[in-house]
Amino acid sequence: MALFLVTTKLWAVIQTQSTAMLGSLADTGLDLVASLATLAGVWIAAQPADAEHRFGHGKAEALSAMFQVVLISLSAAGLAFRAVMQLIAGEQVASADEGILVSAVAFVATLVLLWWQRRVLARTGSLAIATDHLHYKSDLALNLAVIAALVLDRYLNVPGADPLFGLAIAGWLGWGAWRAAGEAIDHLMDREWPEERRAAFLEVLARHPELRGVHDLRTRTSGADDFVQFHASVDGQMTVAEAHRLMDELEERIEAEFPGVEVLIHPDPDGLVNEEGTAAEELLPGASPQRSG
């Protein structure tokens, strides 16, 4: 799709000499490079864990997303510079019909691509695809902006319409890059799950009658993979075999509610005093923190 759009927009830029159209071409050209980066990132992330990457390769998707962010940012900066130069020179587009036609075709083609990406996201939850999807969603507004710029500049003779729309498109691209960077950085920095998801996870644990409490809960997401580890407070009189059986039951409940999550559980006897001389904090819903000297 990106190859098709690059070809048609390149022809339209040659015909119209429009800054807004040039911005659309630059954006689509970066879409092509970003799509290749997404393909590489998703392929690497899908590789199973190995001896050198025991937690898998999921962060390759975040790296791919960051690469896309850099490309989008460079595109926005270059477009803004071109628009300012056109404003200073007072240039007007040479033609509009070709640009309007190509932008209309690109709008429809992008809708088809977004529909397909939504299907893929529903099945995979891929961060790299999500970043690519965000970029293509901005393309819808981008194509409409190009059409508006060409109509205003060529047919309504509004001074500076084309470069001003070019600046607006550059700002839109920059904002999209900022948003995409935030999520990618969260994955690379192992940010905790959102509070709502952590609470839902603890709700699942709280349903087990033999679990006394949970502490040191840690969560993170790497690509399409989720990881959780925590300490589980159990009856101190349990045998090792009984505690193991309880851990297996907790893992089964977690898998039912959070499919695919990799879990590491450390059982602790209830009331265990930590190195600071205080009891572990209980995190199960409805339980208040308990501390003892």
Score class of each variant (00 low, 15 high):
Lys137Cys: 06
Ser138Gln: 03
Asp139Pro: 05
Asp139Leu: 01
Asp139Gln: 02
Leu140Ala: 01
Ala141Tyr: 15
Leu142Thr: 12
Asn143Arg: 01
Leu144His: 02
Val146Leu: 04
Val146Pro: 10
Ile147Met: 14
Ala148Asp: 03
Ala148Tyr: 04
Ala149Lys: 07
Ala149Val: 08
Leu150Ala: 09
Leu152Arg: 08
Asp153Tyr: 06
Asp153Gln: 09
Arg154Gly: 13
Tyr155Ile: 09
Tyr155Glu: 11
Tyr155Trp: 15
Leu156Gln: 12
Leu156Pro: 10
Asn157Gly: 13
Val158Asn: 10
Pro159Lys: 11
Pro159Glu: 13
Ala161Ile: 14
Ala161Glu: 15
Asp162Met: 12
Leu164Met: 15
Gly166Ala: 14
Ala168Ile: 15
Ala168Cys: 14
Ala168Gln: 07
Ala170Lys: 11
Ala170Phe: 07
Gly171Val: 05
Gly171Glu: 10
Trp172Ser: 11
Leu173Cys: 10
Gly176Pro: 00
Ala177Ile: 02
Ala177Gly: 06
Ala177Lys: 04
Ala177His: 04
Trp178Tyr: 14
Trp178Leu: 13
Trp178Phe: 12
Arg179Asp: 11
Ala180Asn: 11
Ala180Phe: 02
Ala180Asp: 02
Glu183Thr: 14
Glu183Trp: 01
Ala184Leu: 06
Ala184Thr: 09
Ile185Tyr: 09
Ile185Ala: 12
Ile185His: 05
Ile185Asp: 00
Asp186Gly: 04
Asp186Asn: 12
Asp186Phe: 03
Asp186Thr: 04
Leu188Gly: 05
Asp190Val: 03
Arg191Asn: 07
Arg191Pro: 00
Pro194His: 11
Glu195Asp: 13
Glu196Asn: 11
Arg197Ile: 06
Arg197Thr: 12
Arg197Gly: 00
Arg198Trp: 00
Arg198Asp: 03
Ala199Gln: 12
Phe201Pro: 06
Phe201Val: 06
Phe201Gly: 03
Glu203Ala: 13
Glu203Thr: 13
Glu203Met: 08
Val204Arg: 07
Leu205Asn: 09
Leu205Trp: 08
Arg207Lys: 14
Arg207Asn: 12
His208Ala: 08
Pro209Leu: 09
Glu210Pro: 00
Glu210Arg: 14
Leu211Asn: 11
Leu211His: 10
Arg212Asp: 13
Arg212Ile: 03
His215Cys: 12
Asp216Asn: 14
Asp216Glu: 13
Leu217Val: 10
Leu217Lys: 08
Arg218Asp: 02
Arg218Gln: 05
Arg218Val: 05
Arg220Ala: 02
Arg220Phe: 01
Arg220Val: 01
Arg220Gln: 03
Thr221Phe: 00
Thr221His: 06
Ser222Met: 14
Gly223Thr: 08
Gly223Trp: 06
Ala224Tyr: 00
Asp225Tyr: 03
Asp225Pro: 00
Asp226Val: 00
Phe227Tyr: 13
Val228Pro: 03
